[in-house]
Design a protein around this nucleic acid. Structure first.
Length: 927
RNA sequence: AGGCGGAUAGCUCAGUUGGGAGAGCGCUGCCCUUACAAGGCAGGGGUCACAGGUUCGAUCCCUGUUCCGCCUACCA
């Protein structure tokens, strides 16, 4: 029989490339509704096509792959559906940047050619992350790769939009929305990131119209918006001001006067001066206050957040000031305005003030509240069932702690702004009849400085006022249903990318068609995601799934941690502290990275990732590799299958431990405790299988005449093969490689069955026996170190136990004791041991004595014994104290009391033996 | 401001019916013992953040405090 030889060190690179290719070629990951087994489906959180694999993906995907490989091996009908999303704003930004480098712009290309250009970009660069995912060994059904802009998924988007519109759950209206002046588009509330900054609070005086000598002082952080003020609010119960309500003030720097209104909602009497300017077109709270008081809205910025001279004029601003600030951005206009106010004696105070500003989550530009017509989803009716689904447990959020977070957000949810003023994405299926909307369709010439426009592309900007009446349909209507006019303009806006992502769990399975896939795999089983997209994505999938499928999109939502750097800082390119998973995979191997991430995925705690950790698990992979290598070197010879109870002590013990390991790994996976599953495997493989089992069986394997040989070889193969299957979801490459070198049936470990607990392996008595062995060998080894005996030196040692049964076990363990203790063992009772030249250590009734030979320093040994004595004395006193306590005796459970008594007895016994050990050593030292 | 989470060995973290405090890495000493030096063996190291309370007994349950992190909202 020829045995394959393995290299001394595991080389992941060669192994990974090979298996990755074979797995995909063989179609192991291909799912089909016709396959047998209960369906188990995960849809991947679609990464962005502009992205490349970062360590957060690596964690997210490793966890999914562990679940998927585990369930596949369990015989379920598994589908892991991969894909990417089109990331409207991000992708458009990337392509625009490219165009800029070529001296072009999207405006110069025009919409159609620009979109073509994005598709080209996608074809060339959009699957970077997919290739990287394959390297991570992800067992997705790659044949089913989906993209949010695919034909099928786009069809789903149309269907959903039209149906929601029919049910009046989608509407168009003019609202104050968050606007990114760089991306030139609306954003939803949650696409704005808030950041604390040090700002200034300006006190500005507004003279009363009737008596300009009296001035009302307002406090503001944004003095430039004063041009858009339409009132000043005070608290109706504030005695300082309430008599002024109904009067008017002169709005500085303008020709306007504005009313003083009483508003208990807006005004906090304690804050600032107690008087607030109301600027309905530029602040969300002011917008609502404006509604309450029927105030006009003066919008003073254009869409790039530059002060717009036309609008300033309409707001009655003094011409000199218009000239001074026109077309300036806020940052430049503000100081100028402050200066003018100061010159006129109206700016009386500037205080430092902590405040937060909103930034675009894609480009970090400061967003502006901007008044514009937009499309919205009326969200409350959709949120209701989505709240219930979580409340009544149809959807489980794991860890449970995030449930309240979800519920709180859902109960307070705001309408969702879904229109984006960009080109890349699903264009809104709404058309406007020119004839019927002549007043509402306003086209203005709009040249962007520095842009050369191609022939036929007039730089026009179409504004569709909120009064325009849209025709919403899946296809472009041939004519206007009202006037039969044929001049129809399509709404230029596209939908928020998350709108299409919200449909992901069913649009990817073929909806709106009734496909077998949809029938088999919906609802999906588990969603694995990070907390950052709980609201963006998870909540919206739940709403849409319930609405359009009538059922939840998934049963379990597993929320994993954020990966940070070793110092706990968020990783970011600008900080330069990113750990590149591809580099790590190159350096330490994919399996090491995967195992590291799994082992650190403790719930509710962020992962602080350091390279040393990955290195540690690289070493683990190498350890496993060498265990396999050892096995192969020792497998020559016949193997015999016998029932477990007839096998040797080491075999029965390792089977018992393996059984327990299978149990706990399985139950930890069921509980989504990847960390504990990984640590259980680590502990078993390294510290039981390698450290003890392989050592215990060496004499048998290396003795060709041993009677135990055939059985031991059998157990060795059996346990190693089983362990490889158990570990496979975590370390797919290494286990596949090793599995193939072992005697096996089948063509790949990927499609083998996952180990199940085996009752015939259970042997608690072997576990106890092992504990005795381990303790004995531990004392022998400690003694050797104390006496400076090198490991190779054969020694003479004595072992005895107080309890007859344990003493019997020691006899049964004799050969293992002498092998692992490296010497000759004498099992005579301590009364027969030599009294001189012996070092004796004691633990729980067990005594180990080692002959002291040659010139050794016994002081170390004496220190050790003395220390042990004092620790034991302390523990004895503690236990005695407890047992003397009448209340303890009266109230503690009997088993606790007897346990305490047993321990005390054992300690007292040990103590007296230790005392004689100490005396003997002292005698030797004295001699 | 509100909500949530965390504080355990030098570092990173486990630790549920409350009863002797653990792992990995790092550190110290010895050893290239025929699978593995990416290794083996042994060892040191912790008033479990602080203060109260409940209990015979608290790292664990309750209350409060401090510090750190995150989320949500507001901040004229």
């Amino acid at each position: 029989m020829s045995t394959p030889q393995l290299d001394k060190i595991y080389d992941p690179k060669a192994v990974e490339a090979r298996w990755s290719q074979i797995w995909n070629q063989q179609g192991y990951f291909h799912a089909s509704p016709t396959h047998s087994g209960q369906p188990y489906c995960i849809v991947i959180p679609p990464p962005n096509i502009t992205g490349s694999l970062h360590v957060g993906h690596a964690l997210n995907h490793s966890i999914q792959d562990i679940l998927i490989r585990w369930r596949r091996m369990q015989g379920l009908n598994v589908l892991w559906l991969p894909g990417t999303d089109h990331a409207g704003i991000a992708t458009q930004n990337v392509v625009e940047k490219q165009l800029m480098a070529e001296g072009l712009s999207r405006e110069s290309l025009g919409r159609e050619r620009f979109i073509e250009r994005v598709w080209q970009w996608k074809a060339a660069s959009g699957d970077t992350i997919i290739r990287q995912q394959k390297r991570l060994g992800e067992s997705c059904d790659w044949d089913r790769l989906r993209f949010t802009m695919d034909e099928g998924l786009s069809k789903a988007v149309l269907e959903v939009f039209v149906r929601l519109h029919e049910e009046e759950l989608i509407y168009r209206g003019e609202r104050l929305i968050n606007w990114c002046p760089r991306c030139l588009t609306a954003l939803s509330d949650i696409e704005v990131e808030h950041e604390e900054i040090k700002g200034k609070l300006c006190s500005i005086e507004y003279p009363l119209e009737q008596d300009p000598a009296i001035r009302l002082t307002v406090a503001t952080t944004r003095p430039e918006t004063l041009f858009g003020d339409s009132a000043v609010a005070v608290h109706p119960e504030d005695p300082r001001y309430n008599r002024l309500i109904g009067q008017r003030v002169r709005l500085p720097l303008t020709h306007r006067t504005i009313p003083i209104v009483g508003d208990a909602i807006l005004v906090d009497r304690e804050f600032g001066t107690g008087a607030v300017k109301i600027t309905p077109a530029h602040d969300f709270n002011d917008f609502e206050a404006g509604e309450r008081h029927g105030l006009p809205r003066y919008s003073i910025f254009d869409h790039q957040a530059l002060l717009d001279p036309e609008r300033l004029k309409a707001a009655g601003v003094e011409q000199a000031l218009i000239d001074a600030v026109a077309t300036l951005p806020v940052t430049k206009a503000r100081p100028k305005i402050e200066q003018v106010l100061k010159d006129r004696g109206l700016l009386t105070k500037v205080d430092d003030h902590k405040m937060s500003i909103g930034k675009c989550y894609r480009c970090k530009t400061v967003v502006e509240p901007y008044l514009s017509p937009q499309w919205f989803v009326k969200i409350k009716p959709l949120a209701e069932p989505a709240i219930q689904a979580v409340e009544d447990g149809r959807i489980r959020i794991i860890p449970d702690g995030w449930t309240n977070n979800y519920l709180g957000w859902m109960r307070d949810i705001k309408d969702w702004c879904i229109s984006r003023q960009i080109w890349w994405g699903h264009q809104i299926p709404a058309w406007y009849c020119r004839h019927c909307n002549t007043e509402s369709l306003v086209e203005t010439e709009h040249r962007i400085p520095g842009v050369t426009y191609g022939p036929g592309h007039t730089p026009k900007r179409l504004v569709i006022l909120s009064t325009a009446k849209p025709i919403v349909a899946k296809q472009a209507p041939a004519s206007c249903p009202l006037c039969n006019g044929t001049e129809l303009i399509r709404d230029p806006d596209v939908l928020d990318t998350w709108f299409s992502s919200a449909l992901w769990p069913f649009s990817t399975l073929g909806w709106p068609n009734h496909t077998p896939e949809l029938k088999t795999y919906y609802p999906t089983s588990t969603l694995v995601t990070g907390l950052d997209i709980l609201f963006f994505w998870v909540a919206r999938m739940i709403m849409m799934g319930l609405k359009f499928m009538g059922d939840v999109p998934f049963r379990d939502v597993y929320i994993h941690a954020l990966v940070r750097d070793a110092e706990g800082q968020k990783m970011s390119k600008s900080k330069g502290n990113v750990i590149d998973p591809l580099h790590v995979m190159e350096q330490f191997g994919t399996d090491a990275l995967r195992f590291t991430l799994a082992s650190m995925a403790s719930p509710g705690r962020d992962i602080k990732l350091a390279e040393e950790r990955i290195e540690g698990y690289r070493n683990f992979a190498n350890k496993i590799w060498n265990a396999a290598r050892f096995s192969l070197m020792n497998l020559d010879g016949p193997r015999a299958v016998t029932i477990p109870s007839e096998r040797t002590f080491p075999d029965r013990w390792i089977l018992s431990r393996l059984n327990q390991t299978i149990r706990s790994v399985t139950s930890e996976l069921e509980a989504y405790r990847f960390d504990r599953a990984a640590n259980t495997l680590y502990q078993f493989i390294w510290h039981e299988y390698c450290d003890w089992y392989l050592e215990l069986i060496k004499p048998t394997l290396q003795d060709p005449a041993s009677q135990d040989g055939p059985g031991t070889r059998q157990t060795l193969v059996e346990t190693l093969e089983t362990t490889m299957r158990l570990l496979h979801p975590f370390m797919p490459y290494l286990t596949e490689e090793i599995w193939h070198t072992l005697p096996h049936q089948g063509e790949s470990i990927v499609i083998q069955t996952y180990p199940k607990p085996e009752s015939s392996w259970v042997a608690p008595e072997m576990d106890h026996r092992f504990a005795l062995l381990e303790q004995t060998i531990g004392l022998v080894r400690t003694s050797r170190v104390l006496l400076n005996y090198p490991p190779a030196q054969q020694i003479m040692f004595y072992v005895a136990h107080d309890e007859p049964q344990q003493q019997d076990h020691l006899h049964e363990l004799r050969s293992h004791l002498s092998h692992l203790g490296r010497g000759t063992v004498d099992l005579a009772p301590p009364t027969h041991w030599p009294t001189g030249n012996l070092l004796r250590l004691v633990a729980e009734g067990l005594s180990v004595g080692i002959k002291v030979a040659g010139d050794v320093d016994l002081n170390k040994a004496l220190d050790r014994i003395t220390k042990e004595q004092s620790e034991q004395t302390k523990e004895i006193q503690r236990l005695e104290g407890k047992l003397r306590n009448q209340e303890f005796i009266a109230k503690a459970p009997p088993e606790v009391i007897s346990d305490h008594q047993d321990r005390l007895k054992s300690l007292r016994r040990d103590q007296s033996m230790l005392l004689s050990s100490a005396q003997q050593v002292q005698a030797m030292l004295g001699a």
